[in-house]
């Protein structure tokens, strides 16, 4: 464990807390993409299925349970919460996710770390899907033009988590002899690159004060 990975996990937890605060606490799903929330639930339920047989550490175990629980809770409230449904904009949340899920599934089967193990294929699928899962959310924000304060912090924390993981991978590559995870590195790079535009506008709007809303052109 290194500081980058720890901060990355904390940033990921923060993004969940912000989103739960908005959706469950604030009873509002305005500006939030259900499609992204559902893809994240798929990402965690597929990647962490090794909870059933793999025990790397208590920290890992607990966070995996937390991420699965939080992502399913968010989808549940966005789908069945009365006030959340009322504030969720299904027409604008229209990114064709089948064009994301299908290619990731094909890639997961073709490019993974052990072709003999079905879990490796599912795991690779989850890594690829996570890289593009944010697209419907960014698409929705782009459409709406203005990003509500809490939502902007949620997206920022979510983007920061994988950016911090990039530093973690560089650190591990330099300090551990035979450490290589090309699949994760490339996917993490793509994932973080998708946030660059948002990061820029987030920084522009927040440098004038943390509670200014983010404007996307």
């Amino acid at each position: 464990m290194n500081i980058f990975r720890f901060l990355g996990d904390m940033s990921h937890i923060l993004s969940f807390l912000l989103l739960l605060h908005k959706i469950v606490g604030g009873k509002s799903a305005a500006g939030i993409s259900l499609r992204t929330a559902e893809m994240y639930a798929i990402v965690f339920c597929t990647r962490y299925i090794d909870l059933l047989w793999n025990f790397a550490s208590l920290y890992n175990y607990l966070l995996k349970l937390l991420f699965i629980g939080a992502s399913l809770t968010i989808v549940y409230f966005m789908r069945y919460g009365p006030s959340q449904k009322a504030t969720y904009n299904a027409d604008e949340d229209a990114f064709p996710v089948q064009y994301l899920i299908a290619p990731c599934a094909v890639l997961g089967v073709l490019i993974n770390q052990d072709h003999s193990s079905p879990f490796e294929m599912v795991w690779a699928f989850s890594i690829y899907l996570e890289a593009v899962a944010i697209l419907p959310q960014l698409f929705l924000l782009q459409k709406q033009g203005e990003v509500e304060n809490l939502t902007s912090h949620y997206v920022f924390a979510l983007g920061a988590y994988r950016a911090l993981y990039l530093l973690n991978w560089m650190f591990r590559f330099m300090t551990e002899p035979d450490y290589q995870q090309r699949i994760v590195w490339l996917s993490g790079l793509v994932q973080t690159a998708l946030y660059c535009d948002f990061f820029y506008h987030y920084y522009q709007s927040k440098k004038g004060g943390l509670n200014k809303s983010v404007k996307l052109p």
Binding site: D50, N54, A56, L63, K64, F67, S117, F119, E120, Q181
Partner: peptide, 10 residues
């Protein structure tokens, strides 16, 4: 075993 060890990240 290698595969499992490798999966020490979230």
């Amino acid at each position: 075993v290698l595969a499992d060890v490798k999966k020490d990240e979230l």
